[in-house]
């Protein structure tokens, strides 16, 4: 199984990453090697076996639908790279 440069470019797009030509080359090689290695799991017989999707049996954990104080807005905005009037500021989305 080989992951080619075209696939890496596609994955980068899906992942919202910009990669240099050098990085594309390197990740194509790394991903091919790692995926090849991980393909070892195909040797395990999993006929009639269901997937495990969590590490324990907690399932549909509910809580009371109560109004409780939420975190302070200014505190949450303190890490925003750009803010205005109590909101996150971003560039114009529609032209």
């Amino acid at each position: 199984m080989s992951v080619n440069k075209k696939e890496i470019v596609h994955l980068a797009k899906l992942s919202n990453l910009y990669l240099s030509e050098e990085e594309i080359e390197k990740y194509a090689k790394d991903l091919t090697e790692i995926i090849d290695f991980a393909s070892m799991i195909n040797s395990v017989n999993t006929d009639e076996i269901n997937e495990t999707i969590a590490a324990n049996e907690n399932f549909n954990v509910f809580r009371k639908d109560q109004v409780i104080p939420s975190m302070d807005r200014n505190l949450l905005l303190q890490n925003a790279p750009s803010q205005d009037d109590g909101m996150f500021r971003i560039p114009k989305v529609l032209n």
Binding site: V3, E7, I8, L11, A12, L14, S15, L17, Y18, L19, E23, Y27, D30, L31, I34, I35
Partner: peptide, 17 residues
């Protein structure tokens, strides 16, 4: 792209794959 290091990018790409 500027914020993540090489291994973080590698794992994001692998996971996306």
């Amino acid at each position: 792209s500027e914020g993540f290091g090489a291994e973080a990018k590698r794992r994001i790409m692998l996971g996306t794959y």
